[in-house]
Amino acid sequence: MNTVLSRLNTIFAFTLSVMAGLTFLCFLSTFFNDHKALVAINTGKVIVKNVPDYSASREKNDLAEYETKDHKLNQVVVWDKIIKRGDNPILDYRKANTKYYFWDYGNGLRANKNITLTLSWNVIPNAGTLPKIMGEGHHRFEFPEDYSPNRFQ
């Protein structure tokens, strides 16, 4: 009855069930969290350029959520940041450039009057669900009527 194998088996099974129980408690501890937060975004100088995109074999492209003639909904990520556990979760930036280029699929940015900037985030818990939260608060801006003439501005 009490062979090495059966004892190993018992220890293994017990360890597994304790770990499963703890993981479930981890899941419970974050499942009911409300991850909402307030967001205030603004834009400074907005310029739009018409430049060739060499990474994609397309002709020319204009450089957040907006609507163009042929695409109803367009979303582009322009900035992101990873906040680890223990980091300061309050983001306060005064002058920030976009982290990624704001390309359009076609030529839909020039004189586009309906661009909405929002901030949303994923929460990765120790174990459990992966909620995606939309920040409360957004900023709407317009792109100018003309392409910026200066190449390096």
Binding site: D70, H71, K72, L73, N74, Q75, V76, V77, I82, Y100, W103, Y105
Partner: peptide, 20 residues
């Protein structure tokens, strides 16, 4: 993670992804 989404009115969607 999805970086860009372009969705047409009829629901066809094109998107681009990037690893964090």
């Amino acid at each position: 993670r999805v970086l860009k989404v372009h969705e047409k009115e009829n629901g066809t969607v094109k998107f681009l992804t990037k690893g964090d």
